[in-house]
Write a protein that binds this DNA or RNA. Structure first.
Length: 558
DNA sequence: GTAGGGTTAG
């Protein structure tokens, strides 16, 4: 045996690694007295070539720690392994390491560039993706359809933050040598984020080839822009064209039903979900998403018990599941149940987030648990690692205001670390009206008018407060001021759909043909409601009592 | 080897 120097060791390690005896290579590596660049290269490339990427990454990290830099031999299989490494770091959200691997690559091909562009597109900042794209063009690497699709996506995500990059996306899209369904779907998403659902629909209509992702992108475009009826119409079209929906589809359809409070359609969607094999008992991510959407749909439609049933049926839950249920309880007047569930959430080991705390604080507010609210608010940073945001302050002002602690609510607004907005002042003004505090009401109304002079809300509330106190002159003055400032109040209106007909009602509306019957029934109802108010309960009418006339979500037999 | 779609609050 010749003298064992690092070169001898290396040849053994390299051979073992190349042949796939990685564990043997690994133990040999560990017993080496010294290592050089070549040793590290053998280990990294060995693991990378045999699809043991985790270990390849670990070795790569260790190599850097020991002061070695990657060279063109570090990834023996060449560019592909290196690009895969960029992609791996990108998928882990580790942008700087992805960039570093990319920087250290001896040569780069279209896939390496694409991987880095995607990295910035997914992890941000998305503008960097465009910069990398420009660098790529400068270095004379020909972009392919994947490059363009990623760049279009980057522009699309930028279209959400006011700089209108949707035009840039469109320009690149129009100049793509080859378009494909992915780039088109990215454009749909971009238009949806820029609130141009019409343009999104046009893109969708013109597509030669569509798949379920394109359908889902447009359906979610509608729900995210509040066009829930359109979302459901598109779902019906999808069914007619026999396209198979996925859990993405159901998440959106259920959200549309939830936002429309369309219980009947939501229940149809639930049946459909079961037909498609979502049983919430596999613990898979898809099941959790659909389960969460179902909880939300039921509680938004006022059926807390059905939402709770879904919640209990789920084998695995995430933070959103708990949040949806806690908020569902809170919004339907079940303050105790919301807080109980929150304690159970903590016991289960699930970490609450800022949305959970909004649910908890609003539960306290609606149930009148002032002390609990104060306690959770003051300890949320320490106990749950969630620092109060403006929304949490708004919940507290609402809670204190409802309970009549108007001065405390006022100081909370004035001492909070962020700028108060019209929502938080508006909440206090409403509380001033309830508790008939005209002095503070005037002060708050002025603050509000400073924020949104053209809105009628503060004027109307203030004038009504004066009127309630019998100060008619002051009430008139506010109304006069409104007129002078050119502020008009849009009359409120409500509507109901009965047997496919929409009936609209406005204040002092005398147009409905059966107005006399309606008003006499209203008198009876309000007389009955008065004694019920103290122990108010939510509930829904049974199906026999309701005359459903909604359109079916799909027409195949169940 | 690289690209597109989802739930909770406000």
């Amino acid at each position: 045996m010749p003298e064992r120097n690092v070169f001898t060791w290396n040849s053994f390690v390299t051979a073992l690694a190349k042949l796939g005896f990685l564990d043997e290579a690994d133990s040999l590596f560990r017993s080496m007295p010294e290592r050089d660049q070549c040793t590290w290269n053998s280990m990294v490339s060995g693991f990378a070539q045999h699809d043991r990427c985790e270990e390849a990454l670990q070795y790569f990290g260790l190599m850097h720690k020991e002061g070695f830099k990657a060279n063109e031999y570090t990834f023996a299989s060449g560019l592909s392994a290196c690009s895969a490494l960029v992609d791996m770091y990108s998928k882990c959200g580790n942008v700087s390491d992805a960039q570093q691997v990319f920087d250290e690559m001896g040569s780069r091909n279209v896939v390496s560039w694409n991987s880095l562009i995607t990295c910035y597109e997914q992890n941000g900042p998305a503008v960097e993706a465009l910069k990398v794209f420009h660098e790529m063009l400068k270095s004379n690497v020909e972009p392919d359809e994947v490059t363009f699709a990623s760049v279009v996506s980057a522009c699309a995500s930028l279209s959400a933050i006011k700089c209108s990059r949707i035009t840039e996306a469109r320009f690149i899209f129009d100049n793509m040598p080859i378009r494909n369904v992915i780039a088109e779907t990215s454009m749909i998403r971009g238009y949806a984020m820029a609130a141009s659902t019409k343009a999104a629909r046009l893109m969708f209509t013109k597509m030669k080839e569509r798949n379920i992702v394109s359908w889902n992108a447009l359906i979610s475009g509608y729900t995210q822009n509040g066009e829930n009826e359109e979302a459901l119409n598109l779902f019906r079209l999808l069914k007619r064209e026999s396209v198979c929906p996925t859990h993405y589809t159901f998440a959106n359809v259920l959200k549309a039903c939830a936002d429309l409070a369309e219980l009947h359609l939501g229940m149809q969607a639930h049946v459909h979900v079961l037909k498609h094999g979502f049983k919430f008992q596999s613990g898979e991510e898809a099941d959790i998403f659909v389960g969460n959407s179902l909880i939300d749909m039921y509680v938004k439609c006022g059926c807390v018990e059905d939402g709770y049933l879904v919640f209990r049926k789920m084998m695995e839950r995430d933070c959103v599941s708990w949040n949806a249920m806690i908020i569902g309880f809170a919004q339907n007047g079940y303050g105790n149940e919301a807080l109980e569930l929150f304690r159970e959430m903590l016991d289960s080991g699930e970490k609450p987030d800022h949305i959970t705390m909004i649910g908890v604080l609003s539960a306290c507010g609606h149930a009148g648990f002032v002390d609990e609210g104060r306690h959770y608010f003051s300890s949320m940073t320490k106990d749950f690692g969630v620092a109060p945001l403006r929304d949490h302050y708004t919940c507290m002002v609402d809670l204190l205001g409802r309970a009549g602690f108007l001065e405390e609510a006022k100081s909370m607004i004035e001492e909070m670390p962020m700028q108060p907005d019209s929502v938080i002042w508006g909440s206090l003004l409403a509380a001033c009206k309830v508790h008939r505090n005209i002095t503070l009401g005037k002060y708050v109304a002025e603050k509000l008018l400073g924020l949104e002079a053209s809105k009628s809300g503060p004027y109307v509330l203030l004038s009504n407060m004066y009127a309630e106190l019998g100060q008619w002159g002051d009430a008139m003055n506010v109304r006069k001021l409104m007129k002078k400032e050119g502020v008009t109040k849009q009359p409120g209106c409500s509507w109901i759909k009965i047997q496919g007909h929409v009936h609209v009602f406005m204040v002092k509306d005398k147009r409905h043909p059966r107005k006399r019957q309606i008003h006499s029934l209203l008198d009876i109802l309000s007389a009955e409601m008065r004694p019920e108010q103290d122990h108010a309960e939510t509930g829904s009418l049974s199906s026999e009592e309701m005359d459903y006339s909604s359109t079916l979500l799909w027409d195949d037999t169940m």
